[in-house]
Amino acid sequence: MLDERGPRVDQALEARHPAEPHWYLGLLTVAPDAQVGGVGSALVRAGLARADADGLPAYLECERHREAYYARFGVARTPTVEIDDGAPAHLGMWRPAGG
Rank of each mutant, 00 (worst) to 15 (best):
P21E: 10
W94C: 00
L27F: 14
Y59M: 00
P32C: 07
L56R: 12
A68F: 00
H65E: 11
Y70W: 13
D54T: 06
D84C: 04
P21H: 12
H90K: 11
L43Q: 05
G40H: 12
A87Q: 05
G92L: 00
A49N: 05
H17E: 15
V75I: 15
L60Y: 15
V44T: 10
A51L: 03
Y69T: 12
C62S: 13
G92S: 03
R64T: 14
E67D: 15
G86P: 03
V75Q: 01
L60E: 08
A34H: 12
A68M: 00
Y70N: 10
T29L: 10
L43E: 05
Y59K: 02
G37F: 06
T78M: 08
E61W: 07
A71F: 05
L56N: 04
R64G: 13
E67N: 07
A76S: 03
A31V: 02
V75Y: 03
W23K: 01
P57L: 03
E63L: 15
R77I: 01
R45P: 08
L48S: 02
Y59R: 01
G92M: 00
H65I: 03
R77G: 00
P32K: 11
P18T: 10
H22P: 03
A71Q: 15
A46C: 03
G55W: 11
A58I: 00
D54P: 06
Y24Q: 08
G92C: 02
R66T: 14
L43D: 06
G99S: 03
L60N: 12
Q35Y: 04
R45Q: 14
D33G: 09
V81P: 04
